[in-house]
């Protein structure tokens, strides 16, 4: 059992609310006295993941587990899934619609940024079923 478990439902219909969960997690981690560098890595990785959930999967669930040695993030959605994960991991590759680009995202940096800021990442995705992303940041 982890020291702390946080769960958030991400609303897929409202882009303006995307990031609220990441912001709440950041605040909680700060109150726990987690080192700022680790908090920033968690916040950015989670925020990109949350944005992805809203853009591509009509929302989902975020679980964050805090342990003495690591923070584990699990982002689960029941969206359309990722057909080619290797391609999706390439910087600049994006399937996001144009209106998302007008909002400052959809440049194909989401998954690469998530990989960059997490110390370990795994993607489990099935087309038509959904995607689960696991990320760990070591403390």
């Amino acid at each position: 059992m982890s020291m702390l478990n946080l769960t958030y439902e991400v609303d897929g219909d409202d882009f303006t609310r995307a990031g609220e969960a990441s912001s709440a997690v950041k605040k909680r981690l700060r109150s726990l006295g987690i080192p700022p560098e680790a908090i920033r890595k968690v916040a950015i990785a989670l925020y990109e993941g949350e944005i992805n959930m809203v853009i591509h999967a009509n929302g989902g669930t975020i679980d964050v587990a805090v342990d003495p040695d690591k923070i584990t993030m699990t982002l689960k959605d029941t969206g359309k899934g990722i057909a080619d994960i290797k391609k999706a991991m390439q910087e600049g590759y994006s399937t996001a619609p144009d209106e998302v680009r007008n909002l400052g995202f959809g440049a194909g940096m989401g998954l690469p940024n998530m990989k960059k800021y997490s110390d370990h990442m795994e993607i489990d995705s099935t087309v038509g079923v959904g995607t689960t992303v696991y990320m760990e940041v070591y403390l």
Partner: peptide, 9 residues
């Protein structure tokens, strides 16, 4: 582009 901002800490 916000993802570019997030790419470089």
């Amino acid at each position: 582009m916000m993802s570019d901002v997030l790419a470089f800490v």
